[in-house]
């Protein structure tokens, strides 16, 4: 906590403060520069376009506000996603930034998100003999239903609260896992 903060991080911290009052689109580089106490030029040097700023801000928010609880089993995965959706619900402005950043044309060399790797690892354990194509179908589906995009779509497009979104998520996960062959351990879980 006491560590000296570099400029790039200071910019993100200030941007997240401004997000409490305004939408991302309404945060100008000038307002941001004033908030941090640096020149607008310095911000441009760190984040040449708003897309760069969005991507970095989303990563930072993800790490500081929405750390993903580790999971190995499918039931832990469900619990982790529920916790995440509830956290999104408590800080919607931050969650929208994450949903949006995951939709933009990538500006940096984007690595798959941590949750993607965690889902793949979970399936390796739960369904070790599952063929590659089905594994990919299952992983991609679970990933997409556990995303900030899913939460955001259900909140703004369907006016659902966190409980209802978690319920829709659980049902979607059920339908995907029901397609796994019965020998897979995943089905046995509640």
């Amino acid at each position: 906590m006491e560590e000296p903060v570099d400029t790039a991080t200071a910019i993100l911290a200030s941007a997240s403060v401004l997000l409490r009052e305004s939408m991302f689109d309404d945060i100008s580089y000038r307002a941001l520069a004033d908030e941090v106490g640096i020149s607008e030029r310095t911000i441009y040097r760190q984040y040449p376009t708003r897309a760069h700023l969005l991507a970095a801000l989303s990563n930072w928010i993800e790490q500081t506000r929405f750390p993903l609880p580790p999971f190995v089993t499918v039931s832990d995965f469900r619990a982790a996603v529920h916790e995440r959706f509830r956290a999104f619900d408590a800080l919607p402005a931050y969650a929208y930034v994450g949903a949006r950043a995951s939709a933009v044309s990538p500006t940096l060399d984007t690595e798959p998100a941590y949750i993607t790797r965690a889902i793949e690892a979970m399936l390796d354990v739960a369904a070790p003999t599952l063929n590659r194509r089905d594994r990919r179908r299952v992983a991609a589906s679970l990933r997409y239903f556990s995303s900030a995009m899913f939460w955001s779509r259900l909140r703004t497009g369907f006016d659902l609260d966190a409980d209802e979104i978690c319920d829709a998520f659980d049902r979607a996960v059920d339908t995907v896992l029901a397609r796994l062959p019965s020998s897979s351990a995943t089905r046995a879980e509640p």
Partner: peptide, 17 residues
């Protein structure tokens, strides 16, 4: 849940993700 899941899948977000 069915409408939400299908709406979600039938979107550009799926392709991007």
């Amino acid at each position: 849940a069915i409408i939400a899941a299908l709406s979600h899948l039938d979107s550009a977000g799926t392709w991007v993700t």
